[in-house]
Nucleic acid binder design. Sequence first.
DNA 1: GTCCAGGGCCGTT
DNA 2: AACGGCCATGGA
Length: 235
Amino acid sequence: MNDNKCIELYNLLSKKYKDLNWWPVDPKYHEKNKTDSRFEIIIGAILTQNTAWSNVEKALENLKEKNKLGIKSIIQSETEELREMIRPSGFFNQKADRLKTISIHIAEEYNQDLDNFFNKDLRELRTELLSLNGIGPETADSILLYAGEKPVFVVDAYTKRLCQRLPINVKIEYNAIQKHFEEELSKKYSGQELIQTYNQFHASIVILAKDFCRKKPVCKGCPLFEKCSYHYKLF
DNA sequence: GTCCAGGGCCGTT
DNA sequence: AACGGCCATGGA
């Protein structure tokens, strides 16, 4: 009963936030141009590191405008030009290097073929992503879940904050939280449904954190108000 | 003007 | 293992 807090959390959140359909790309575009769309998600995952999505959108627009949003284009682009195109997303010097690093990796090891890339064994692929400079756990897992459609629960700063405030009885550390959520959720869901659950869950946590569970929390009206003990501590 | 955003790396303790 | 400094832009 008590170990089921994440299922309860998921049910509450998905009732409030329905069919979010993340990652934010046009679903029709995703279906029609799967390869391009997947690559765009990979690039977006890197560009959004500690950065507001609205800024990432500007960077992606710049890349699309100049027809540079592709593996080959990024590898061949001049570093200085790449930096300018992604400037709005912030940290643009390191991010330009990171975009090149992963593009070169996919080109050299997988002949630029994302199907080939994502067909690799999940654990091996995750380790491989983490070995690349600039790809940490959240970026790797976002790529695996949203671009690769793999059953991976993404943990971010919002998820940690939420676990801390509710609280959910886990050590506030990336791997511990991920393990806990994956164990609980995979008891109930499997296959495509599990993937969809991870997708929807992470997306709804992000929205919740923007609407209510901000750094400076807005507890009034929060869908988790009854379940959360944090607001009792407020003033 | 201040704060903060869907992190990650590197050096220090 | 945990923590601090650093990287940078744009919107609230």
